[in-house]
């Protein structure tokens, strides 16, 4: 019998704890496939965030460190500086990366730290039960914006990829989505490039992945994908925001 579905070696046998229909699972799989394909499982060190992906240290079959909320890029910097030949990645949510950890994110990017960041943007705090995130859309109702996010009180959502691409440090910044097969394939290519860049010592790479949180959006998994397409993509356009390879070619 031919094997049509096989778990990547870089994913462990521990069952994922994510809610049904949550796209965290897809992105885990993509990261693991890339690690497999690049054959770097033995030299990769992952950094888990504080957020729904906190248990990532149980899921990836490589060495892992668990960081304090928002500090993953700093922890990754320490790991990379200690053993520069190793491949170091972080996997962070939007609260972790773009609220409490903005300083660490911006400065790792500015330093051009040779690490890979996978940034899951689901416009909400999942783990703590659905509070407003820095990426929550204007008008979006959350537990801490019960009347919808209002610009006067809570300001505008942050576009992290655009912001970071204004810095000299990063080598690659791309925003993807996992709402369709095509976009999932794109996301995988981006993640692979973000790891390859690190192997090639090109410096800081970040892949932002628009993702769903059916549980806290109060939608079914399918409705959530529609909501992502209709609301998130217009505000967070997909695309490459920085790529030094392309710049050099140009």
């Amino acid at each position: 019998m031919a094997i049509v579905f096989q778990k990547p070696k870089a994913l462990s046998d521990v069952p994922l704890h994510y809610c049904p229909g949550c796209t965290h699972g897809i992105v885990h799989r993509l990261v693991a496939e890339v690690i497999d394909e690049l054959g770097i499982e033995g030299s990769t060190i992952g950094v888990a965030p504080v957020g729904c992906a906190v248990f990532a240290y149980n899921y990836f079959n490589c060495d892992m460190q668990e960081a304090a909320h928002g500090r993953a890029p700093a922890v990754a910097t320490g790991i990379k500086r200690a053993n520069p030949e190793n491949i170091v990645f972080t996997y962070q949510g939007d609260g972790d990366l773009a609220a409490i950890g903005t300083a660490e994110t911006v400065h790792a990017a500015a330093r051009g730290e040779n690490i890979t960041i996978i940034f899951i943007n689901n416009a909400i705090y999942g783990m703590t039960g659905g509070q407003m995130a820095p990426t929550t859309l204007v008008g979006q109702v959350t537990q801490t914006s019960p009347y919808g996010r209002k610009v006067e009180a809570q300001g505008y959502p942050i576009r992290m990829s655009e912001m970071l691409s204004t810095l000299e440090g990063p080598s690659y910044i791309k925003r993807c989505s996992v709402d369709s097969i095509k976009n999932i394939n794109d996301t995988k290519r981006a993640i692979k490039k973000a790891f390859q860049n690190q192997i090639d010592k090109k410096g800081f790479s970040l892949v932002e992945v628009l993702s769903t949180c059916p549980t806290n959006w109060g939608l079914s998994p399918v409705e959530a994908l529609d909501w992502l397409r209709e609301n998130m993509i217009p505000h967070y356009p997909l695309g490459t925001y920085k790529d030094i390879d392309a710049e050099q070619k140009a």
Partner: peptide, 20 residues
């Protein structure tokens, strides 16, 4: 002025509803 964290997030949620 708050920031979510279990097991006290209900304080923020309550304030978010009432303060406005």
């Amino acid at each position: 002025f708050g920031y979510p964290i279990t097991p006290q997030t209900e304080i923020s949620a309550y304030m978010a509803r009432r303060m406005p």
